[in-house]
């Protein structure tokens, strides 16, 4: 195991020492499972795609995004990132190690939720590869979003303000998915984290689920949105990321 992996494993163990993070990490998927249990009855099989994609966005936003943003900001503020750079870890290794617990937590939460859905009667996904692509790209984009917001936040205390645009835009995109007008739904897909959700919906329930545009093949809109936001977050990270607190 290389140095970054060793440190990453330790960071995962540390996740359980932070009571609030451990609590949020366990309660959220359980809460979503309970919520799904109460809303699942009498659902048509084709509606599972949008249900799972909605819950997936909530999970990413409330758990992975918040944790990622807080971890990067706190680790920078307490100079841990700078100290780790004095070790033999490469810069990429430091980021990998700090990111590992967030990704692990996200994967575990998604797995719990997906398995729960299958257990309580969801049909098998129509396009597993697309579902997997949506889940993986959603997770990575969310981690990048958290890192980007950490990059523009002076302190942990400032993150509720700096994260506000991402949270509002994502929730707006989520609500727009229920609109009767196809153009509104398609516009919503272009908002952050909704692109991967669209891929999840189509991956689970087929190409008729989620946004439908006659002008392009079904998964293309979600894919374009995912790539666009991945590029935006990467650009913000490249421009603003610092290893130590801003003076």
């Amino acid at each position: 195991m290389n140095m970054a992996m060793r440190h990453g494993v330790l960071e995962i163990r540390l996740l359980f020492r932070r009571k609030t993070t451990a609590f949020a990490a366990s309660v959220l998927p359980i809460g979503l499972c309970v919520l799904t249990w109460f809303t699942v009855r009498n659902r048509a099989p084709e509606s599972w795609g949008s249900l799972v994609s909605d819950r997936f966005v909530m999970l990413m936003l409330l758990s992975v995004f918040m944790t990622s943003m807080t971890v990067y900001t706190a680790r920078r503020q307490s100079l841990v990132l700078k100290r780790l750079r004095t070790s033999e870890l490469t810069d990429a290794g430091v980021i990998t190690a700090i990111t590992m617990p967030v990704v692990t937590m996200g994967v575990a939460q998604v797995l719990v939720y997906v398995v729960f859905c299958l257990v309580v009667g969801a049909p098998m996904p129509a396009h597993p590869w697309l579902l997997l692509l949506g889940l993986a790209s959603g997770l990575l984009t969310t981690v990048a979003a958290g890192m980007a917001i950490a990059a523009v936040s002076r302190s942990v205390e400032a993150t509720p303000v700096t994260a506000f645009p991402v949270i509002v835009a994502t929730l707006a995109g989520l609500f727009m998915q229920d609109a009767p007008d196809a153009a509104v739904v398609a516009s919503g897909v272009m908002l952050p984290l909704i692109g991967p959700a669209d891929l999840v919906a189509k991956g689970w329930s087929g190409y008729d689920a989620g946004a439908t545009l006659t002008s392009m093949p079904p998964p293309l809109l979600g894919l374009a949105s995912t790539l666009l936001w991945a590029a935006v977050f990467a650009a913000v990270i490249a421009r603003f990321f610092r290893w130590e607190p801003r003076a």
Binding site: L14, R17, S78, L79, V80, K82, R83, L84, T86
Partner: peptide
């Protein structure tokens, strides 16, 4: 080996 002006240790360890 380097020692910074401020430690930057991981508090939970």
């Amino acid at each position: 080996g380097m020692m910074l002006q401020h430690a930057g240790l991981i508090e939970e360890l």
